[in-house]
Simulated scan of single mutants.
Amino acid sequence: MLKCFVIINPSSGKIRYKEYLPELTNVLKQKFSEIELVYTEKKGDGIHYGLTTDADTVIVVGGDGTIREVVNGLMQQERVPKLGVIPAGTVNDLARALNIPLHPFKAIAVLKKDTVKYIDVG
C-alpha cells in the first residue's frame, strides 16, 4: 500500500492551485492507494508536515520557501520519502534547477513518468 502526502501552500505565488488540483489527484490515484492533502497556514507548517509524515512520497505544491520548510522536516526523519514538486511560487529556483516544468499541468505530467533524481540538499 503506497501512500502519498500532498502539502499545498494555498498562498504561494500567483498560481491558483484549485485549477489543477483535480488533475494532480487523478494522476496520483493511478500510483498510490492512499492520498492525503494538507494545507499550510503559517510559517513552520511545512517543517511540521515534513517531519511527521509517514508517506512513501511527498508532493509539495508551493514555492521555494515551502519546499525548503518541507525538506527541513523530511531530513529529520530516519527514512526520507521521495519528494515531488509542483512549482507554484514566484521564482521556483529548485524547479528550474531540476528542469521541472514551471507550468503546473506540465509538472503534473512529469509525475506520471516516475523519474527520480538524487540531489544534495546542501
Results as ranks from 00 to 15, higher is better:
C4D: 00
C4I: 02
F5R: 05
I7A: 02
I7T: 04
I8N: 01
N9V: 02
N9H: 04
N9K: 03
P10K: 09
S12C: 11
K14Y: 12
I15K: 14
I15S: 04
I15C: 04
I15A: 04
Y17D: 03
K18Q: 13
L21P: 01
L21W: 01
P22H: 09
P22I: 08
P22M: 08
P22G: 08
E23K: 12
E23G: 02
L24M: 13
L24S: 07
N26S: 14
V27W: 06
L28D: 01
L28A: 03
L28N: 02
K31H: 12
F32A: 13
F32H: 12
F32M: 09
S33E: 15
S33L: 13
E34T: 14
I35V: 15
I35F: 06
I35Y: 07
E36Q: 14
V38I: 14
Y39A: 14
T40M: 06
T40N: 08
E41I: 12
E41C: 13
K42C: 13
K42T: 15
K43F: 14
K43I: 15
K43V: 15
G44I: 11
G44D: 11
G46Y: 10
G46H: 12
H48N: 14
H48W: 11
G50R: 04
G50N: 09
T52Y: 15
T52P: 10
T52D: 14
A55P: 07
A55K: 07
D56H: 14
D56Q: 13
T57W: 05
I59Q: 03
V60W: 02
V60H: 04
V61S: 03
G62E: 04
G62W: 01
G62R: 01
G63N: 05
D64C: 06
G65P: 05
T66R: 07
I67L: 13
I67M: 04
I67V: 15
R68M: 04
E69H: 04
V70S: 04
V70K: 02
V71A: 05
V71E: 00
V71Q: 01
N72Y: 06
N72L: 10
G73R: 10
G73A: 12
G73W: 10
L74P: 03
L74D: 05
L74E: 05
L74S: 08
M75A: 08
M75F: 08
Q76C: 09
Q77Y: 05
E78Y: 08
R79H: 11
R79V: 15
P81K: 09
K82I: 05
K82N: 12
G84P: 04
P87K: 03
A88V: 00
A88N: 01
G89K: 00
G89S: 04
G89R: 00
G89N: 02
T90Q: 09
N92P: 06
N92K: 05
D93T: 11
L94F: 11
L94R: 05
L94I: 10
L94W: 04
A95I: 07
A95K: 00
A95H: 02
A97E: 09
N99A: 09
H103S: 06
P104R: 00
F105L: 12
K106H: 08
K106C: 00
I108E: 01
I108Q: 01
A109K: 15
L111H: 00
T115Q: 06
T115E: 12
V116E: 12
K117F: 07
K117N: 10
